[in-house]
Design a protein around this nucleic acid. Structure first.
Lengths: 164, 164
DNA sequence: CACAATTCAATTGCACACAACCCAAAGACC
DNA sequence: GGTCTTTGGGTTGTGTGCAATTGAATTGTG
């Protein structure tokens, strides 16, 4: 790694990682959009249903922890899922701050139809299960790293030389 | 790969790839948000500036092709960049349908300060340049595959057996 | 030249995603 | 009991991201 500023190269290189991740994510989103259209679901709505199918019933807080989403995103999303009759929201009696979400019978029934989704997505990726697993592993590690980064680095030094 | 439906496993496995990609992308976005706050830029705005810094001046259409964004996203974004004085939009004289975007002197000057950004981002990833390059390559390949997928597959068969 | 098809940008509508706030309920503390 | 703090959801505001439409300009074709 050079210590010269090398503005051109840095700006180009940087674009590569973040941009490819950004684009891949949107491309994936597009594929999900197409596949989930038949179910009338968006991709984040599908994610919420996945965790509910697994756990049966969860408070909003727990869904947010699982998906790393806050109430600003989840509240309206859950209201939409409730509006189309797939989930039910009930304020807990023992802790009235908490709202418990669970699939309605229609929401639970959707699970049977939804098991087709992963096959179609996997086919669209064109990757083997092994490659998928590997990529997933790297991305999870990257996310953990990014979440933990505090960014309190000196603007210039301390970056190029980790031993500093 | 088994041919049994295996709903549980399929739904879980599927969650892994798409979810990790989705989460990694948002985590990256969060890091950029923190780093770019000093510049008053969002991450997509930064991407637009990157291509403008490289090419000097581009029609909206070309920016969209580079970043895979359409006018619905770019039009308001560019108006914001114009509002804060970083770019200039001018309707082309030779083709009046086209709008040419280029950095203002302030926008061009920002480039010098922005070369700090990639260092901080790279540091936050905790990855070597080699790992970054490898990941980028996989993601680009994945995006290409996803963009090309037509999804006109049979819902069930035709997935597990590529020779079909 | 006239007319249809295409292209480019902008706009509208909807759904995240996140920061920043508000409020009510629950705990913690004296 | 009476405050103080924390916690869980909700709301608001801003900024994407994308489908669908509009409208003007250009191109293609007879």
């Amino acid at each position: 790694m050079k210590t010269t500023p090398d503005t051109e190269e840095a700006l180009r290189l940087d674009r590569q990682i973040c941009f490819s991740l950004h684009t891949a994510s949107r491309a994936f989103n597009g594929v999900y959009r197409a596949v989930l259209k038949d179910f009338g679901l968006t991709y984040p709505q599908y994610l919420v249903l996945l965790v509910l199918w697994e756990d049966g019933e969860l408070p909003v807080k727990a869904i947010g922890t699982r998906l790393r989403l806050d109430s600003g995103t989840l509240s309206p999303l859950l209201k939409r899922l409730e509006a189309i009759g797939l989930v039910e929201r009930r304020r807990s009696t023992e802790d009235e701050r908490s709202v418990t979400v669970r699939p309605t019978p229609e929401g639970a029934a959707l699970r049977k139809r939804a098991h087709l989704v992963p096959h179609r997505i996997a086919a669209a990726t064109g990757l083997s299960l092994e490659e998928i697993g590997d990529l997933q592993e790297r991305l999870s590690a990257l996310t953990a790293k990014l979440d933990g980064a505090d960014l309190d680095l000196d603007p210039l030094d301390g970056c190029a030389d980790p031993t500093h």
